[in-house]
Design a protein around this nucleic acid. Sequence first.
DNA 1: ACCGCTGTGTAGCTTTTGGTACAGACTCCG
DNA 2: CGGAGTCTGTACCAAAAGCTACACAGCGGT
Lengths: 221, 221
Amino acid sequence: MTTSSLESLGPFRQLSEGSRALLRRGAVLAECGPPAPILQPGTSISGAYFVVRGRLRVYAVAPDGTEATLYFINPGETCVFALNSLFNDLRYPAWVQADADTTVALIPGGVYRELFQKEPSIQDVTVRALSTLVFRLMEELEEVHAYKLDQRLANLLLIHASAAGELAMTQQQMAAHLGTTREVVARLMRDFVARGFVETGRGVTRVKNADGLAGLIATPT
Amino acid sequence: MTTSSLESLGPFRQLSEGSRALLRRGAVLAECGPPAPILQPGTSISGAYFVVRGRLRVYAVAPDGTEATLYFINPGETCVFALNSLFNDLRYPAWVQADADTTVALIPGGVYRELFQKEPSIQDVTVRALSTLVFRLMEELEEVHAYKLDQRLANLLLIHASAAGELAMTQQQMAAHLGTTREVVARLMRDFVARGFVETGRGVTRVKNADGLAGLIATPT
DNA sequence: ACCGCTGTGTAGCTTTTGGTACAGACTCCG
DNA sequence: CGGAGTCTGTACCAAAAGCTACACAGCGGT
């Protein structure tokens, strides 16, 4: 994978020749091996991030150390937090962690701003990325307010399970995602198991009755 | 106040003559008297909203009827939720309520899109508005996760109190803002009063010891 | 086989928050 | 001044979630 292959990706396909050259000279690809924090609050953003492969997880950390996922950035999406800081001169307010085997393209701030001015497709992708993020954040905020933990856990299982109904996450990871503790997840899981909704294993949870979980979300309590 | 006065506001000041004419023909001003919901989830957005005077409150409503404020839109700010739906064809996912004496300019979708394409200043204000919103939402999400209700209430009092330390809100409104119930707010208030942090009155709360409240936020429990 | 590490299962207690119910106080208005 | 409507104060109970502590199971390495 080289930086020139960036040009064949999503929003960069329709660029003018000049912009392509600009991108080729300026962009840098970064590979992330094992999951590791790559950005911390207050980091001054030096460019726009574009997820080529893998996934980024943006999360908050409370004073007591517990985490909570704010949102994910999937392949083909621009990492908008960077745009945020890029256009508004705000310091980045959260943590970012890359999944295993993630590739990120870093487009320096100056280059991005130039592209944004010249290229309608970049303007478009920028606004769309921001809009999508706003949407996700509003959804998340609404979920936190409106649903109890068991419903949010059920939702997590339904959303992130593979086609085969498997979810390869430890309970600790689920807890961090939901902003709670492992014990609470284990307690809820025990309940789900008792009701025949899921089976638990080491590092994996299998969904046996998706309708049951879905019903849990729909009905109160 | 006429629509032509819009042109003297913020981002519209630098427009070309053609764009001004476009705006003059297309934009509509709406006055909102008493506080009332003006948008509901699923509403299809027909344009971009721009707050001229007053304030908009964007909030979520849980199935059980309790509300929670997601964010405010202040005078001079574009109502980005509209942009969101405008550029992404997403249905609007929350409720919007206008404060008393609020004036909103409605710029039809087609007009706004045309302005966005032609005018760098509109591109700029759009991206900035979205960025700011992303920032606010992330902050809010983080606050909900990291702080307990007493801390969030203390924060509300500190942030929204006037220079004289007065906050003209009923406890019911505070509760809706924080996504909880009036009784809980009353209980926390009793505690604040006992500690000498505030004085309560009908429809108004006076901050007597801002440092005390601030200390509450800083220290755990 | 043994050890250490990581992950899960469980119990019991505490704190926080929500729900219900009602009393009293203030305000506007006729 | 009286009454309706709105706002606040409070007591009590229930539910949800967090905290601590510990047992045990799987897995990999030596």
